[in-house]
């Protein structure tokens, strides 16, 4: 082969209309971007910062800062009502979150495998618990649970509270898992099944890993909704099993909250943050596992 050199004019990027953004402009944009990001995160945490400041205030007067004091932190232990409420909250929310995440994932897979029209109808129903006014949901759940009372007279308490929390947390899990399911390649599951993998195993080994980001987001949201619910919890609890929100609302009706409540909120936030950072550092040190949710 002979090579014939042809002198075509070579177009530059500029001639295509491409213009290099000057380096300083890029830098400014970059800085602006991170400033805005941090600003948004700061505003997300603004109320938490105020709570933290209030928890460190030596004075119980919340509109002015006196001096730094840690007295409200050990004082949490001296508040038996607060302690009980905290314990109840943890118990209810952890059970509700775990169960809602597992069930919600299964349900979402089930709903996804329905025909499109059917699925849309059920997904509309799925939105009702999120949309309905809390007090309406709380009331109607209570009435439904009451129908069980002739069979189980002492049903109201932890059990009904967990059931009520499942009622409004499962929809959040489904809402988060569904978009992920739509992104999965349908051939993937078919392939697995054709290869003789049993359906349940295929679901756990093929499908669940593919949608785990959605599952995790759903779990986070379920926990978030559950840990701070007041109205629905109020109507569906019983036998003195009050969670933290019910207790807080009950106190501000007539009395003054102890600053130890602020201390607890701050601790919850701090512990989670520190825990996350520690986990991250430890994991990086070990250089094991690339993904958090690895099986």
């Amino acid at each position: 082969m002979t090579e014939k050199r042809i002198d075509y004019p070579v177009a530059t990027l500029e001639e295509y209309g491409y213009r290099e953004t000057p380096a300083y402009v890029k830098k400014i944009i970059k800085v602006l971007k991170s400033v805005l990001t941090y600003l948004v995160i700061f505003f997300l945490y603004l109320s938490i910062i105020v709570i933290a400041i209030q928890s460190l205030n030596s004075s119980r007067v919340m509109s002015a800062f006196d001096h730094v004091s840690f007295q409200w932190y050990p004082n949490i232990l001296n508040e038996p009502e607060l302690m009980t409420a905290i314990k109840n909250t943890f118990l209810v929310s952890s059970i509700a979150t775990v169960v809602a995440t597992i069930l919600g994932t299964f349900f979402a897979i089930g709903l996804y495998s329905l025909e499109k029209k059917r699925r849309q109808q059920w997904m509309l129903m799925n939105n009702v618990p999120i949309l309905n006014a809390d007090i309406v949901t709380g009331f109607s759940l209570m009435l439904m649970f009451r129908l069980l009372m002739p069979l189980f007279p002492n049903i109201f308490g932890l059990f009904t509270l967990v059931m009520a929390h499942l009622f409004f947390t499962i929809p959040y899990v489904i809402l988060n898992v569904m978009p992920k399911l739509k992104e999965t390649d349908p051939n993937l599951m078919d392939a697995a099944l054709d290869l003789g993998v049993r359906p349940f195993k295929a679901m756990l080994k093929v499908l669940v890993p593919a949608i785990k980001a959605g599952i995790f987001a759903g779990m986070l949201m379920a926990l978030t909704m559950s840990i701070d619910d007041f109205v629905i919890s109020y109507f569906n609890t019983g036998a003195g099993f009050d969670n933290l929100s019910v207790w807080i609302y009950g106190v501000i009706g007539r009395r003054e909250l102890t600053p130890s409540v602020y201390a607890f909120s701050t601790l919850l936030t701090l512990f989670t943050l520190v825990g996350l950072v520690l986990y991250e550092t430890l994991k990086n040190n070990k250089k094991k596992g690339k993904l958090w949710l690895r099986k």
């Binding site: 986070l220 926990l223 919850l268």
Partner: peptide, 14 residues
């Protein structure tokens, strides 16, 4: 993401 949603774990009224 956990950091983003963490503020919501504190009581809404507070």
């Amino acid at each position: 993401l956990t950091i983003i949603i963490l503020p919501m774990w504190s009581n809404l009224i507070l």
